[in-house]
Structure formats: structure tokens, C-alpha cells
Amino acid sequence: MTTKKNQPTHPLDSLVRTDRIPHIWCPGCGVGTAFSSCLIAMKSSGIDLQKTTMVSGIGCSARGPGYTNLDSYHTTHGRAIPYATGMKLANPQLNVVVFSGDGDLFAIGGNHFIHAARRNIDLTVVCVNNLNYGMTGGQVAATTPSLSKTTTTPQGNPEPPFNLPLLAFASGATYVARWTILHTRDLTKSIEEALQRRGFSFIEVLAPCPTGYGRRNRERPLDALRFYQEKSIIKNDAHPADIILDYQKGITLGTFVDVEKPTFTDIYEKTCRLDPAACM
């Protein structure tokens, strides 16, 4: 890597494995922005980075933890949350961040997601939603909007997509937010809040996928950002059932849910762990 003489280093270089940069993400891909937002939030939230770990499954977004200079874990497809759950239960002091994509977390790993949310395991889940399976060539995913074209639906997608914040809310997540990569400041603030609080936090990040989704739907990365700018409506505390993600009507962004509930570890300690004093 050649940099100009006397040039200060990038402020995030301390958190990144610089020997692996430039990363694999395509030009105009939004995963990189979500990744830097996540790193900035980790840095500014003041959490102990020695006790922080990033977990991911398989996919484009799931490459993210591999580029961090933290303890990170690249797991099997869709199983990021089970591994993260295991880590959190084995060592409750860890801050566990799951950074993965929509295909990984909601299609193959959908069951794990809803059950981790139901149990309220103390995880921060950042889901980069690029509306398709990017790494394998742009196939239809559980989040692909109706009628949009992908490799496997050349005539248009006949299925309705998941409303991810509603799914997270219905499963019992205690913090639910949705932002786009254009709203980096709000996104960073949201990840920061999620890292500092206890309980299952879910943040959906909308990101353009120029190679997989954009190419077949005539959407360049800058068109996607312009759409985010023109059509997004920020409604904090809106009910997740009322929020929309529609290419004609617009997208609702904001922090929708922020409630306190006892976490799985708290209840487990009370019910299942034997009190050593009581045994004697």
C-alpha cells in the first residue's frame, strides 16, 4: 500500500487488518459503508474492544468481520447467531456483534434469528440488506421486493419480501432500527446505542448491490442513494407493522423499538444455575 509521505493514517486503520485492504466488495457496494459505520460506532461507544467479538456467516457482508483487527469469527452459512449465542453464554462478559447479510440471517438462518430474539440473548445484530444473494450471483432472496428481477426470477419476483423490523419486533427483539448507508450518522448512533445497551438489538441497513441486484433492475449505486435521499421518511417510534419498504411509496427509517426486558443470561442465572450457597 503506497501512501503519500507525511500522510497521517486513516483513523479506522487501528481496527482494520490493513494488509487485507482493499476488500472484496464491488465498487459502489454499500457493505463497506455499513462496515465503517460499525467500526466508528465501536470506537466511539467506549466498549472494551479487547472483549468484543464480531461474528458472521457466509456472504458478501459476512466478509466484514474478517477485515477487523478484533477477535472475529467467520462461521458456517446462516449459523452466525447460534455461534454468537454460544460465545455469549460461555463468556457473558463478551460484547458479541453479529455482522451479516440478509440472505444469511433471514433465509438460511431465519429460525436462529427468531429464536435468539425470543430468548433475548444479549447480541447486537447488524444486518446489511442488499435485497438479494450478492456473492453467489444475484439470486432471489427472502428480502427481494416483489416484481424485481434477479438471476433466478428473470420475469420478476412473484413473492412478497420480509419486513425485517416487523419480524424482529414480533419475535421479541428489544431494539429495532432501520437505516440506509446514506444515513451514516444515524446508523452509527444507532449501532452505538445498540452496543451500549443490554438485550437483543437488531439494526437493518439498506445497501445497494450494483453487481447483483442493481444490474438487473437498472439501478446504479448513486441512483439507489438518490432514492434513499428522496424517498426515505424518518419516523422514530413508528410501529413496525406500519413501516414500508416500497420502491414507489418510499421507505420508513428510524429506531422503532427500544424496550428493556430481562436477558436470557439473567433468567438462566436465576432458574437453572444452582446457587453454591444453597447447596452447602
Binding site: 486503520d13 476488500h23 466488495w25 457493505v31 459503508t33 465503517s36 459505520s37 451514516t184 450518522r185
Partner: peptide
């Protein structure tokens, strides 16, 4: 790599808001 990089057009106009730093997907500007 064959890409057109950005360059500074107006020297001294930057107010150090760090927006380019956050939105850059490639950790290439700050």
C-alpha cells in the same frame, strides 16, 4: 486498479465534517 479517484477541487473549503470518511465504502478518504 484503473479507477478514477476523487481529488480536492476547493482547497480550504472542507469543514472537517467527516461525512466522506463515513460514507466511503473502501476506507480510502478521511
Amino acid at each position: 486498479k484503473g479507477y478514477h479517484t476523487p481529488r480536492v477541487k476547493k482547497e480550504g473549503a472542507c469543514v472537517n465534517c467527516h461525512y466522506c470518511e463515513t460514507i466511503c465504502p473502501d476506507l480510502a478518504i478521511y
